[in-house]
Design a protein around this nucleic acid. Sequence first.
DNA 1: TTGAAAGCGATACCAG
DNA 2: CTGGTATCGCTTTCAA
Lengths: 327, 327
Amino acid sequence: MTTIREVAKLAGVSVATVSRTLNNSGYVSESTRKRVEKAVKELNFYPNEVARSLFQKKSKLIGLLLPDITNPFFPAIAKGVEDGVNQRGYSLLLGNVEDDAEKESDYLKIFEQNNIAGVISAVQGSAAKLNNMPLVLLDRVNSHQEYAVHSDDYAGGKLAAQAVVERNPEKVVIMVGPKSVAGSAMRLAGSEKVLQESLVPYEVFQTASFQLNLAEETAERFFEQHPDVDSVIASNDVYALAVMKEAIKRGMNIPEDLQIIGYDDMPFSRMMYPGLSTIAQPAYQIGYQGAELLCNILEKGYAHENHIQLPVTLKLRESLRKKDLDE
Amino acid sequence: MTTIREVAKLAGVSVATVSRTLNNSGYVSESTRKRVEKAVKELNFYPNEVARSLFQKKSKLIGLLLPDITNPFFPAIAKGVEDGVNQRGYSLLLGNVEDDAEKESDYLKIFEQNNIAGVISAVQGSAAKLNNMPLVLLDRVNSHQEYAVHSDDYAGGKLAAQAVVERNPEKVVIMVGPKSVAGSAMRLAGSEKVLQESLVPYEVFQTASFQLNLAEETAERFFEQHPDVDSVIASNDVYALAVMKEAIKRGMNIPEDLQIIGYDDMPFSRMMYPGLSTIAQPAYQIGYQGAELLCNILEKGYAHENHIQLPVTLKLRESLRKKDLDE
DNA sequence: TTGAAAGCGATACCAG
DNA sequence: CTGGTATCGCTTTCAA
């Protein structure tokens, strides 16, 4: 590893001067700047970020907390975050915490130990625990005190229910995500409002988690408890898929016997058959804008808008029946 | 942030002693060790990894290079890697490089600047560029000089072709992944061997990339070039899915008109309908064992086996027809 | 068994 | 404009 010292020696200047040219800070005469740059190139020098970070008490690393990297919604977010932070010269420390509070605080500690510049988190409740590291929440929002990028869950819940209501539902069941997830409650509220106003009866099925590996057994339980369901509003696309698969296994036709709408629009939802109707969240955008928000906070110390809300959209595919009018 | 100095002061010892107790290095009397530990607890102290890393010229971070985080196969690997390195006290710096050589070397540079302990890479050719950072390759292997964990691509290719051959293929097309990916060639070789020995005619369709976002247009091109195909051996599950979807769009029945087998067995392949037959690679295991291999190298400086090969298995689902015998 | 002190590689203050 | 130097927090000789 070549250090600033060797550059200084080669250029015939002090390390202070090299540092100044590197960072465009303070005065450097044109001629010495040239000499330094030449030496830098010649030695193929680039500064050690660890040393920088030690002095500055702040690294160019950002911690990314994800609840479940195997749910394709989160890699989509992660990609947005990555592109966003890269653009501003940061890199990501990955923390996949799996709804495990202990793992989460372990990571938060590791982040601190590494002089992380800030945290972007898509997991619930990663709020108080961090000792004043700047934080941006994605998708899952707690209070209005914090910086967050999220989509309009209430509108999403309404949209989903609306789509079902327009399609001759007999027996509707809403699958609700874990209570601990703020967005779930908002979606449920939105859906319930529409169903109640339309006088469509419905039931609620609570899922314990959003974890991918629980989706299949949850789908089984779902049909045991609601054997006569004909329309489901699922908590996310993964669970919608599991329900669809289980329904087909039970000999039901989709969408004739069972229609279903998901949430998220993960990349695969449009690639399956029947195509999964869903409420699309702009996952990449959520990630990207979250990254920008955090970087602005890091650079300017604040941001004007602390809540960025992104729109959701209805994606109609084959898993919903035709509208009444169309029949 | 509380430092080792404050701990030393509170315990009434020198920082050297604190450091020694923290690391179990050198002599520390039982009584002072107690005092130090008490102080550590009282101040809730944990060492700054950046300072450590600066001195040791080696951090507790491992760089993870992935070709496409939106392909569910890689998050599955990533999860294995994460669990593996966490177990040994390391964390991950994420680099999603998207088949982009420049992005890859950017990340390699960032890794160096951060005194990374080692690199785990699932992208092709991340070999020479790194200045003697320990490297473990996943899934995609170059030469036999390097440390790598991968599955048996040749056997996988054979298995896939075998499954098709036994099921009355009329016109077989093999989709081959990018030439730059070593595994692709092995799989192709395996498949060709079986097809040739069975005297089943076939054609080869070359895909330019494994990227998720190109899957759909590739599927369209595929059918334009091979309108009469009835059996496809796809390069991976994502592309198999895209082909399935496109086939259904074109009014073909699966598996009657078109049967298909994928590769990878990503978590979703079993969740769709029809279920995708595929060659399963143990993604999580590949990641986990790769992590262990790297950690062993880091701690002991070497490892006995530099190539770990994991078995692949055939997963039969609805996307393949019944065997001839069964009909 | 313990402590003083010299770094690790970079930054930034203060003189000159 | 430039250079000397203290400093960031921790580890590790080397003496005591």
